[in-house]
Nucleic acid binder design. Structure first.
Lengths: 337, 337
DNA sequence: CCCAAATTTGGGAACGTTCCCAAATGTATT
DNA sequence: AATACATTTGGGAACGTTCCCAAATTTGGG
């Protein structure tokens, strides 16, 4: 099935010169006669010559390939982020291998192995909601392959990270709810292990404190981000003796689900209950009432993370302070609050 | 920066055996003494040995990697499809390299080159709305690398294809509108070059014919799928002397945009104008009124396309009839019709 | 016209693995 | 004990490229 691939040796033989010269001509090495170069280039083109990544990779011990592992694909957040990462990688002459861990720790570990097998020059990763053990990533460090975390980061590893102003965004969202007269503000958060959840919760708490609203433990619940479980927690809120008058949700898909559930009960949004999300997904402007949310620069996050990775690859200094870049967020006020 | 990678030679030296034996132990070759195998496996594990894809690829002239090129990432359709493809690839022990052409012909060509450079064993592709020249894909055929088209296929190339019942789906959608009493049914289609558009339009035309409704050329327009241009064509429809009483849109994002625009004018959906989409995206059930649409088995399409590709890779018979698999569609009736 | 310097080319090792063939070792059969 | 045969191992070529060093060729200045 697979035909013979034309190699530099084919070209060399055909032109009666050595493979070294062909190689030089093809890679644009300066010390090769112009006529020779032209002949080589033309013949290469004619024979549809294609450089063999394997032999090059073997020689250079580098693949000019970056890997990215994201937890999921089904909402718009990560695909958008990947576009940004891919753009930057391409600009720098790198390819990007994409894989998704499906929110499963095991798949993440397996994906990491694949990345290793593909000899990626660096890894971008946003961990799953389950990931508590980071051995598979520390392995990269031991092998000297740089890593950058984005969005969902690992606090215990000292590597560059890109996050957004989760704290500030959450703070602004909750303060906005307070300004709207809401006082019993609930927070439907994600897994406590995820740092984004911790930071958003901290912003929520701080906003309440600033306005002298007592923190009520019953009004904060954590769930595992499985979209079909939103119903359970919304029902819990709605059936509390003192029903909350606003819900700050950990992300937009959760908030959208919440809005749909609340609407079914006949309660008015935002009159009876206001809802706020986080991330400004595409669907958020479509639902009625349109969702108030905290916008984050998604594509930018992909680009920045990739840049930090490239920085590490170029650098050969071992000990430099791994930066944590924090990108701005912005509150988008719509009809749900 | 990059540390020394442990190789089979390191292991061989350490154990005082030959690299051949190590290789055999690692690949599970039967003719190696059990004790030797165990020793090798244990040391490999200890040294965090990782097989080098480059040398293996070089030897075997196969990468056990498939490539997939999709036109875009921003809506849920292609990401979902990729999940299906990735599942099937993984099951078969293949990795998947993903890239998106951003609806640009040039990027598609460039992506194809990257796939070639990565020595993919096969390529899955859905072409951009611009692609009219297929030289970059015929090159794969000449090199003996199998291709499978899905969703947006190329008619002139004889390779396996996976599509859905576009004709039947469109037929059912239009017939449903007619059953609802609609008679002036418009069709907002995509680029005429795309076969899906041709087929859906044929279904539309046939449904009209079956019910003795005259085909009105003014009621069919083609556009390039740039979402910000929907406005122009919807306005065109609304300002016709004989305003249509239904619009069959080429896909869900278009239909969603249409609904939003029509709502702004104060016209009732579906009373004044019914709207139907195609594909059943996530956002379609969220918008109000919820969108009636033709559901297609997206993940299944990804799986099937991958299977067809694997079939070709395994097969060494040169001339076999390239199959075109047609997957079922199903009309989902909601509130917009 | 010759020598030195600059330009251009060729030869061959190296990258890490697989795989074939031959060699070595072990086991059974007569 | 000798032969045949099965099991296990080692040696080395091959995959396609890069890169170093040396060889060949051209160029230029005196």
């Amino acid at each position: 099935m697979k035909k013979h691939q034309t190699t530099i040796i084919d070209i060399a033989k055909e032109l009666g010169i050595s493979k070294s010269t062909v190689s030089r001509a093809l890679t644009g090495h300066p010390s090769v006669h112009e006529q020779t170069r032209d002949k080589v280039l033309q013949l290469a083109n004619e024979l549809e010559y294609q450089r063999n990544m394997f032999s090059i990779g073997l020689m250079k011990r580098a693949s000019r390939t970056l890997g990215i592992i994201v937890p999921e694909f089904s909402r718009s957040f990560f695909p958008q982020l990947i576009i940004g990462a891919q753009e930057r990688a391409k600009e720098a002459g790198y390819n990007l291998i994409i894989s998704q861990s499906d929110e499963s720790y095991e798949t993440e570990v397996s994906n990491a192995r694949v990345m290793l097998a593909h000899q990626v020059d660096g890894l971008l990763i946003s961990i799953t909601r389950e990931t508590n053990n980071f051995d598979h990533l520390k392995l990269f460090q031991r092998k000297g392959i740089p890593i950058v975390f984005f969005n969902r980061v690992c606090d215990e590893m000292i590597v560059p990270k890109v996050i957004v102003e989760d704290y500030e965004g959450a703070f602004a969202a909750v303060e906005h709810l307070i300004a709207r007269g809401k006082r019993k503000i609930a927070h439907l958060s994600g897994p406590e292990s995820l740092s984004i959840c911790k930071r958003r919760k901290a912003g929520y708490t701080a906003a309440l404190a600033k306005h002298n609203i007592a923190f009520d433990e019953d009004l904060v619940v954590h769930y595992d981000l499985a979209i079909n479980k939103v119903k359970f927690y919304i029902n819990y809120f709605l059936n509390l003796k003192e029903r909350p008058d606003a819900i700050f949700c950990i992300n937009d898909p959760t908030a959208i689900e919440a809005i749909q559930l609340i609407k079914k009960t006949g309660l008015a949004i935002p009159g009876d209950i206001a809802v706020i999300g986080f991330s400004n997904d595409f669907a958020s402007s479509i639902i009625e009432p349109a969702l108030t949310t905290v916008e984050q620069p998604i594509k930018e996050m992909g680009r920045t993370a990739t840049q930090l990775l490239l920085d590490q690859i170029d650098r050969d200094v071992a000990n430099w302070k791994a930066p944590t870049v924090v990108l701005k967020t912005q509150l988008i006020v719509r009809d749900s609050s």
